[in-house]
């Protein structure tokens, strides 16, 4: 189940979200972010994203 939504048009693929993910659920693959099932919807990635590209799905 995908629990966050990364707006790929806003994303600058900097990897900051990957570094703060406590679950290790994110991965920066070349120019896009992938999310796996370890995501807990904690929202830390959405908080720190420099461009506000991440939205947590409720």
């Amino acid at each position: 189940m995908v629990t966050i939504n990364v707006n790929k048009f806003k994303c600058g693929y900097c990897g900051a979200c990957v570094s703060v993910c406590p679950a290790g659920a994110l991965e920066l693959v070349e120019t896009w972010i992938e999310v796996n099932e370890l995501c807990t919807s904690c929202g830390i990635c959405a908080k720190i994203c420099p461009v506000g590209a991440i939205e947590v799905k409720k």
Binding site: A16, S19, V20, C21, G24, I44, K47, P50, V51
Partner: peptide, 13 residues
Amino acid sequence: NTAIKPVDIETCA
């Protein structure tokens, strides 16, 4: 464990 806490990262543009 290299996960960074929000208080330990500067988010930059």
